[in-house]
């Protein structure tokens, strides 16, 4: 309520002098209630997105303020979802701003009992080394087929799982790189 000390702000006065004699509405309003606006009204920008959970493809509006996601809700313009979301889609803000999200690389040494830190650049270098090494070690030019040895030009040492939650562009680059690498044991959720 207005600071009781400023006599004029006292709601009781508004109640007695105004139309809200029982003090159940207009007289009882606080300044905060008068100034109240939705946080999305002050967003820096609204970005068009799509829910990451299931394949219905509900369109989402992502409100951003000061580089942070402040709200994710359905986009009424979508002919598929008409602005609606399910419980998972409605929890998208919590998904992307979850405090338990990992934001640092974790590394586990062989036989170790716990994680340790590792900076990302080094980690990707180490992974690249391992890919090249494992590819070389398990490279196979030919394999026995029903009609004798046939050229296969591949490695069975490297496998990959994943992508139904990923973008088409990501799946494309992964398949392109793996294929050029000769890795063929590539799979994703289409199989489970």
């Amino acid at each position: 309520m207005a600071d009781p000390r400023t006599f004029l702000g006292w709601p009781l006065l508004r109640q007695v002098t105004g139309a809200d004699r029982l003090g159940r509405g207009h007289a009882a309003r606080s300044e905060r209630s008068d100034r109240l606006t939705p946080r999305t009204a002050s967003a820096d920008r609204v970005v068009d997105s799509v829910c990451p959970f299931c394949a219905v493809g509900c369109a989402q509006k992502v409100f951003v303020k000061d580089g942070e996601v402040i709200q994710i809700e359905g986009n009424p313009a979508s002919p598929i979802s008409r602005g609606r979301l399910c419980p998972k889609g409605s929890a998208s803000k919590q998904l992307v701003t979850s405090p338990t999200r990992v934001t640092k690389v974790r590394y586990r040494r062989p036989y170790a009992t716990d994680w340790e830190d590792l900076d990302r650049d080094t980690a990707i270098d180490m992974i690249a080394d391992r890919v090249v090494e494992t590819r070389r070690k398990y490279w196979e030019w030919e394999a026995d087929g029903p009609d004798g040895r046939r050229r296969t030009r591949r490695t069975l040492g490297i496998a990959s799982l994943g992508g139904a939650t990923l973008d088409n562009e990501e799946n494309y680059l992964m398949k392109k790189l793996y294929t050029a690498m000769g890795a063929i044991q590539i799979e994703n959720q289409a199989r489970i």
Partner: peptide
């Protein structure tokens, strides 16, 4: 707060 900005309440907008 959403009503003040002419918006639909969050539950009504989400309800599939």
């Amino acid at each position: 707060d959403r009503l003040k900005d002419g918006q639909t309440p969050a539950c009504a907008q989400a309800c599939p």
